[in-house]
Design a protein around this nucleic acid. Structure first.
Lengths: 240, 240
DNA sequence: TATAATTTGTTCGTATGTATG
DNA sequence: CCATACATACGAACAAATTAT
């Protein structure tokens, strides 16, 4: 039968309808329950969910088991100037930035870490994981790694700018190399950053030395790519 | 019941099993039909599909209606050194690099382009679009933009390194700023790069000047993030 | 604090549509 | 035209997390 001769599948039509209705909601609002929406649009709950899957892939809404599906704020791009301190630049632009420590732990180093940080044989690393917020929205997840022998320097850190904290202790970090890539977040990352799994993150690995040239910190961070762009002012030659 | 007490849902366990089995196949091979796999693993076809959805999201396989699900080539990460010329670095690493011109056209400039390239009033831009291959795999899509008044300089370009071509004509490009982000490709991008739509691309916007300080070229490129990482050696201070 | 109700998450079953070869 | 294989859609049930009672 199928007299209506729909050109596109029902779930896509429904997704478009929902997309337009998102204007009605404020960021943080919750959509009506799936069962309610499915009933309203006379479709099966699977079909409704398939439509909402589209909005999730677009980064417009987020589902929470047992709670509901909430509407995300419209993305804003924050350009980050690589040349100056992260927090500092953003504060200057009028954004409220803060960082909290998710955890600290000592663990055995990977081969990569051991090489980059010039570790002694089997020397463990101290890993400090922080979550950075911008305007109270989680924006990046950072893992700072140090050789165990420097643990006393990092011991008292409890949030804010890591660079500023170290500077107060006489350690002036200087970037040695930066590796920039992109990927989709793991489930764990996505949960921490309150973001959909389908939206890419920028992954940045930075090796920094203490002024004297010895490697000091290896940081691996991921940052929501729908909110951030990384800006490198001037710099070396390269093609395209 | 559920005596096995699975910690993670069945579709995720199944996805992991399939992920490990991908080694058996060659790139381009087709998986057994969904119905066959579902039967083999004793799950419903929906559950099998949900598992394959994971592999699709990871860019490992691609579904074709009526044909089957094919295995994509394994990604290789090529680090790109920002400090030296793109093609040159890669050749040196033993990769075969080439670029072809997809098209050239004159068009009106956007406000962003007009400002960045310091264009005269209503001056059009000349846009050269190239596709870059690495080991004969399409890897990045680049749009080079120049002010119309420089069209004679670019006129004869027909592939290869743009930077080298301009250098032969006495123009030594120097990077002014680089803006790095990530996103998912558009349908058109994905087609050109022969990649799945779910895998992120690095998007890089570079403004370069002719040695004398005047802006000369604005390039916007996208590059498969599952194949590439962008490497910046040394550079300025910054946090995180 | 404990329990029930609500809401999303997973899995099964079944049927039919649509593109490919 | 036919068989195969993926795409869409409906229905039912239960699990798991959260919130309300």
């Amino acid at each position: 039968m199928n007299l209506s001769r729909q050109v596109s599948p029902k779930y896509l039509e429904l997704a478009q309808t929902l997309r337009e209705e998102l204007d009605i909601y404020e960021a943080g609002d919750y959509l009506p329950a799936e069962s309610a929406l499915a009933e309203r649009f006379n479709v099966n709950r699977h079909t409704l969910r398939r439509a909402v899957d589209e909005l999730i892939a677009e980064g417009r809404v987020l589902r929470h088991k047992g709670r509901g599906t909430c509407v995300l704020p419209r993305p804003i791009i924050y350009p980050v100037h690589a040349a100056s301190a992260y927090s500092q630049t953003l504060e200057h632009m009028g954004f409220h930035s803060r960082a909290i420590v998710l955890g600290k732990r000592k663990r055995t180093a990977t081969a990569d870490e051991s090489q980059a940080l010039q570790l002694n044989n089997d020397e463990p690393v101290l890993e400090v994981e922080t979550l950075r917020f911008l305007d109270d929205q989680p924006i990046s997840l950072i893992s700072h790694c140090f050789a165990e022998r420097h643990q006393n320097v990092v011991h008292g850190y409890s949030g804010g700018s890591m660079r500023a904290y170290l500077a107060q202790r006489g350690i002036r970090l200087k970037r040695v190399s930066t590796l920039i890539g992109a990927r989709t977040p793991t489930q764990r990352d996505a949960l921490r950053l309150l973001m959909p799994r389908h939206t890419p993150v920028l992954s940045i690995r930075t090796l920094s030395s203490n002024g004297d040239g010895a490697s000091f910190e290896l940081s691996n961070s991921i940052t929501r790519a729908d909110r951030f762009k990384y800006h490198v002012i001037s710099g070396e030659q390269h093609d395209d």
